[in-house]
Amino acid sequence: MRIVVRHRTVYNYDHAIRYSTQYLRLTPRNNPSQRVIRWNVEGQGRLSPWTDGFGNLCHTLVCDEIVNQISVSANGIVETTELNGVLPDDGILPIKVFLRPTQLTQIDSEIRDFVVPYVETARSNPLDAAHELSQALTERIVYTEGSSHVHSTASDALKNGRGVCQDMAHVFIACARELGMPARYVSGYLYTGDEATPQVASHAWAAVWIEGLGWVSFDLANKTCGTERHIGLAVGLDYASSAPLRGVREGGSESERMDVQVMVTQA
């Protein structure tokens, strides 16, 4: 399937900012399920490309002019192949790195209690356990826009029973790791089929490592595994290490308004 992505982020500030730096993880990599036909990242300021420790294709965007607005855009075309959400490992990092807890995926007693029913299955049939876990979590956590923020943790989402795709991925990752299954965060895009309404955010899901099979994607927010409608942008231990945009600025006071528009269409 050939998918066209137009992703634009605009930051507006009431007071002018003097300097801002951002890490952009806005460039998809080629892998067996996706091939980049054309891709272009632009931003206000100067872009320097680099590759992070996870192998993600990143840019550093520095804007040192006095501005009230900064915009970043990523546009391109990706050819995807239906692999039922299964990808081989890229061989960059040891897979067991993806067992380590992070601040956003900290294990607490609630998570520990929640995974108890899956401990047995996780040992005998990890893939089944992952499916059961995914099912249980989609029942437990209701997709609710605006119910969380970028620093919300897995534990917050499980307690509140509400969250967005990022939170659902975090809870799934925390639970999988607690069950001894390496799990990683994937940020990306989803072709929903609705070509008329722009999406207000990029997408995110989780992938769990199943020995002998590969990284199996679970998109809890859409109650599905990975499909040819998914395009991966970056992988990491959690949102913090794979966020499409992460920045700091000087000036601009407290108020920042971020407008995101993601158009995902079929070519």
Binding site: G53, K96, L99, R100, L237, S241
Partner: peptide, 11 residues
Amino acid sequence: LANAQYQPQMQ
């Protein structure tokens, strides 16, 4: 790998 000082970003 369990060591918090192991830094994947150095890979």
